[in-house]
Design a protein around this nucleic acid. Structure first.
Length: 915
RNA sequence: GGGUGUGUAGCUCAGUUGGUUAGAGUGUUCGGUUCACAUCCGAAAGGUCAUAGGUUCGAGUCCUAUCAUACCCACCA
């Protein structure tokens, strides 16, 4: 532990305006050096764990990361203050295809391909890249204030997580849940690898539907040109080169006679059978489907059912192979044109019509993906999905917002086997070895340690060349990061984790896979809550992307406005699961808030003394003090409740609102009276309350704005830390306790509400009077303190006590202010404006400015409105349904409203009568 | 084809067991050099809560349908 002396040193005086650049630069290293980010495995504390979704080490952090880390850091900082042993574990992902692609792109600048380098050299280059970029990500996360435990940082390709990958693979392999087989997979010719369905993006594109005739072959094996044959429709005519059959629906009267017949495949001159299969749609195209089992998933299924041969037409680079006969070596597009021309020339092409259809593209590089049959590794999903569905159904894992639960179920219930092998070099190599004697085995040992065949002991073995889908290792992240498969102390203490926070766009890719991997391998759900945030879009609502050039760099925003402002803006402008549009304007507003808080603290510090002895804040007796303490207590309670319910944005907005309008605009203004009071006791008491509430505000805001609140908190408690009573056990706000509410004070709230309402009404009346005043006296009018007479009725004593506050905030002339139960006639000149607030009457003799007729009209309008209100409320209260069924609280509120309106009306009539 | 959001002030958005007069920021207009803050303070205007039905004493909130819009899933070749 570093000594307290290492704490950043105090500025001479707080600057007039808040400058985030200086303040944000000075805290992070100190926090980290103090060990605040590294939780102890304290048996007396509850663990609270968030494993950071590992950003891809392929570029800089974007706004999505900034949002992710803001949410996570808020939760972590809150729980840490709330007494939990809070672990926020950071890490980075090797990013599979994306990772390999960035390095290949870099090589391409020198016109080198990975094959020129060879596997080993290429992997060295890739590691170089990773080692160069990982520190960058660390720096960026630090800059954003993420209070993560760097001593526990992980990388998916490290030995630990790599062993977890092999252990899981071997387990699933031995259990028969990982298998190798020939299936239709998605092939990206550019990346030269298999892709899972999730890595393929469908795009609707205009194309054509070609109708082609395949002539009948008669019983003697000759083409029967007098017979119409069978007519098929296709969007990809070139695939006909690999056709091995035609299918029609068994109930289709159009083709009934053709079932079982043989037709001739043009160009290839190959006889192929016509089969009946109910998977064929009756109302699409001609009702007859050409079957290319090698390159279409549906055809593959149908072909399997009818034992049709599979012909692979493609090379791995996407060109046609020798099976394509005359078209071998051509690209798909070129072959398509050639095939169409040839069919047309020979009279087999019947028609061409425009047709839009979905074309699969590689998620990473945009290349058109080719479905093809290939021998790949798969995970059997159904046995794994079932318990993962059950866990969410039972509530062992809760998804926030709730609506994604349905999406999750739908996907999991219709899940298909997961192709996990990738024909890449960068990634976890498949831990399977083959030996010369035809044996195959999986091993969880380090590849270097596998030297002989596990079955026959032969030393002539070689490892599978492929690597695993990057999401395979990501799926193990919640436990591989904690040392699993070893039962490490961290694993025992921090697992299962608390919250998994990520974007809804990777619910299937990642979250779902973590859930079933966690259950299968650790016997527990990996986390209890999934919090899904929305996408951060640009000002126009477009997705931020490098190609559009609308990416906003969070670090630039942080430099400009401060990380605190950025965090606050991202959080308060969003709600769980919903996208948000980001703009400079948003963050400017939260930067203003930071300045406001800075200045509020500056004021409190300059106008209050350090607290010394005296009564506790809860004993305060001045109304503004009692009021702010009560309001503060409610805010503490509500903030905590909202955080518990993951309403981070709402809680942040509420705090902002409370600080700005209640604490600054009302409380501080009202408290200025006490702070300048002649009574030292009164000054001390209000000082104490102001500091107490400010201290609480800083703590409540700390999770949102960590840098600023630390700076202000240190200022509040005296830098070298004499540790005043509020700081008691903590040297940093990070480690200070989460606030707890005091008792609320309903009377104080009611009384101060009345004061506020009266002040507002007077301000309005004055603004109205000035507006209506003749030009020549407007100026005189605005600067003047005005006379006022208040008939307080039952609230007189309280109002008299607050006379100073009323006078100051409503800009009344204290020497011409009277407050009495009733007002004398002198105090009700004809030329006066009368305001009725609750049962209190305020008379403002805005001398010379009040037009009697206008005043009468104004009072009449107000009386009419009040009458209408009374009528409405009466109707409601005479409604048996309402009185009988509405909660007592609501009914009482209506009754009070009625009484107050009646009282107000009486006063209005009284005043009207006197005019 | 199936599913899920969104539609609230000029703009961007909150509004979580249905319950005071539907809120905020920003913009607009008017007024302010009160010794924390002009990155500020005080006020004003601005809403048939997409539309139409329904449930209820009471609906922005619940139900049904429609329209607009965004996204996700899916093997109509």
């Amino acid at each position: 532990m570093t000594d307290i002396q290492d704490k950043p040193t105090e500025n001479e005086a707080m600057a007039k305006a808040y400058s985030p650049q200086d303040v944000e630069a000075r805290w992070y290293d100190w926090w980290e050096a103090q060990g605040y980010f590294t939780p102890e495995r304290d048996p007396n504390k509850e663990p609270y764990t968030i494993i950071m979704p590992p950003p891809n080490v392929t570029g800089d952090l974007h706004m999505g990361h900034a949002l992710t880390n803001a949410v996570e850091d808020i939760l972590i900082r809150w729980k840490r203050m709330d007494g939990y042993s809070a672990l926020y574990l950071p890490g980075e992902d090797h990013a599979g295809i994306a990772g390999q692609n960035v390095v290949e792109k870099e090589l391409a600048k020198d016109e080198i391909s990975r094959h020129d380098l060879g596997r080993e050299k290429f992997l060295e280059r890739t590691w170089d890249w990773m080692n160069r970029y990982r520190p960058r990500m660390r720096y960026q996360l630090r800059r954003l204030g993420a209070s993560c435990d760097w001593s526990r940082e992980r990388f998916t390709m490290e030995p630990g997580p790599a062993r977890a990958v092999r252990t899981v693979f071997k387990h699933l392999y031995d259990k028969g849940l990982i298998y190798k087989g020939e299936r239709i997979i998605n092939w990206c010719p550019r990346c030269a690898t298999t892709l899972s369905d999730l890595e393929v993006e469908m795009e609707t594109e205009p194309g054509f539907l070609w109708t082609i005739r395949y002539p009948l072959i008669d019983s003697e094996g000759k083409v029967d040109l007098t017979h119409p044959g069978i007519v098929v429709a296709t969007t990809r005519p070139e695939t006909m080169l690999g056709d091995t059959g035609v299918a029609v629906h068994p109930d289709d009267p159009r083709w009934k006679d053709m079932i079982g017949k043989t037709v001739m495949l043009p160009i290839m001159n190959r006889p192929i059978p016509v089969v009946a299969d109910s998977a064929v749609e009756l109302d699409f195209g001609t009702g007859a489907v050409k079957l290319t089992p090698g390159h279409d998933p549906l055809d593959f299924e149908i072909g399997k059912r009818h034992n049709l041969p599979i012909i692979n037409l493609l090379n791995l680079d996407g060109t046609l192979n020798e099976n394509a006969g005359p078209y071998a070596g051509q690209t798909v597009n070129k072959a398509r044109k050639g095939v169409v021309d040839e069919l047309e020339g020979e009279g087999y092409l019947i028609k061409v019509e425009p047709h839009t259809h979905n074309v699969p593209h590689c998620e990473r590089c945009g290349t058109v993906v080719e479905p093809m049959v290939s021998d790949q590794w798969f995970v059997s999903m159904q046995p794994l999905a079932a318990p993962a569905i059950e866990a969410v159904r039972r509530g062992d894992v809760r998804i926030v917002p709730d609506r994604f639960t349905k999406v999750y179920f739908h996907w999991m219930e219709n899940i298909r086997d997961w192709p996990i092998s990738r024909q890449l070099w960068w990634g976890h190599r498949i831990p399977v070895w083959y030996c010369d004697n035809g044996h195959r085995f999986a091993s969880d040992e380090s590849p270097d340690a596998v030297t002989v065949c596990a079955e026959c002991g032969s030393p002539n073995i070689h490892q599978d060349p492929d690597v695993l889908d990057t999401w395979f290792s990501s799926g193990l992240w919640p436990f591989s990061t904690l040392g699993w498969p070893d039962k490490t102390p961290d694993y025992e203490y921090f697992y299962p984790t608390s919250v998994m926070e990520t974007g809804y766009d990777i619910l299937f890719f990642w979250v779902a896979r973590m859930i079933f991997q966690g259950i299968e391998n650790t016997g527990q759900v990996p986390f209890h809550t999934v919090y899904l945030h929305g996408l951060v879009r640009d000002e126009q609502g477009r997705k931020m992307s490098k190609s559009v050039g609308n990416v906003v760099d969070p670090l630039i925003m942080a430099d400009k406005y401060g990380s605190d402002a950025l965090r606050m803006a991202l959080i308060t402008n969003s709600s769980p699961g919903n996208d948000q549009k980001f703009s400079d304007g948003r963050i400017e507003q939260t930067a203003h808030f930071a300045n406001k808080l800075w200045n509020a603290t500056r004021f409190v510090l300059s106008s209050t003394g350090a607290p010394e002895g005296g009564a506790a804040p809860s004993q305060a007796h001045a109304l503004p003090d009692r009021w702010i303490l009560s309001r503060y207590s409610r805010i503490v309670e509500q903030t905590t409740r909202m955080l518990e319910d993951y309403q981070l944005g709402e809680a942040g907005k509420m705090l902002q609102e409370f600080v700005w309008s209640e604490f600054c605009d009302w409380y501080i203004e009202a408290a200025k009276g006490s702070l300048k009071s002649d009574s030292a006791e009164q000054r001390a008491e209000t000082s104490k309350v102001a500091r107490y509430v400010l201290d609480g505000i800083l703590r409540l805001l700390h999770p949102y704005m960590p840098f600023l609140t630390e700076e202000l908190w240190q200022n509040l408690h005296g830098w070298p830390s004499k540790d005043g009573e509020l700081a008691a056990s903590a040297k940093s706000i990070m480690m200070a306790a989460w606030p707890t509410p005091l008792a609320t004070d309903d009377e104080a709230e009611r009384d101060f509400n009345l004061i506020m309402e009266i002040i507002r009404e007077i301000r309005n009346a004055r603004a109205d009077a000035v507006r209506d005043a003749p030009e020549n006296i407007k100026k005189e009018m605005t600067g003047r303190r005005i006379e006022a007479h208040i008939a307080g009725g039952a609230r007189t004593a309280m109002l008299q006590q607050e006379a100073d506050t009323l006078a100051r905030l409503a800009r009344l002339d204290p020497t011409k202010l009277t407050i009495a139960e009733r007002l004398s006639e002198d105090e009700r000149p004809d030329k006066a404006t009368t305001l009725v607030v609750d049962e209190v009457e305020v008379v403002l003799p805005l001398a010379g400015l009040v037009d009697l007729g206008a005043e009468k009209k104004r009072l009449q309008t107000e009386a009419e409105q009040t009458e209408a209100e009374i009528e409405r409320t009466n109707a409601l209260l005479s409604n048996e349904g309402f009185v009988g069924r509405a909660p007592a609280q609501v009914v009482d509120r209506e009754r009070a409203k009625l009484a107050s309106a009646q009282e107000r009306l009486a006063k209005l009539h009284e005043r009207l009568g006197s005019l």
